[in-house]
């Protein structure tokens, strides 16, 4: 990566999100829903991350799934 070059006049209209847990999924959704193409890269066979393993979440005791 090059640190010192200015952003080109016609940048790519796509973003790569690495990691498909709750943060990566939210970032991917917001980016895609504001007009950019997203590649969501996940190392494991499915997205969902750690939150999918949780039973309930506080303070509302909602189901994490």
């Amino acid at each position: 990566m090059d640190k010192n070059i200015n952003t080109p006049a016609n940048p790519q209209g796509a973003v790569m999100v690495v990691g498909g847990g709750i943060a990566g999924m939210q970032a991917a959704l917001d980016i895609a829903n504001s007009g950019f193409y997203v590649y969501l890269v996940e190392k494991s066979p499915a997205i969902g991350g750690k939150m999918a393993q949780l039973d309930k979440t506080f303070p509302t005791n909602d189901c994490a799934m």
Partner: peptide, 27 residues
């Protein structure tokens, strides 16, 4: 989790600020 979700949306804004002129070019 809420702080992660907030940061995720924040990163979405930050990551696309520099790309604004190319909005909707690849979708």
């Amino acid at each position: 989790i809420p702080q992660s979700v907030m940061e995720a949306s924040a990163a979405a804004a930050a990551a696309t600020e520099g790309l604004a002129v190319s909005r909707n070019t690849l979708t």
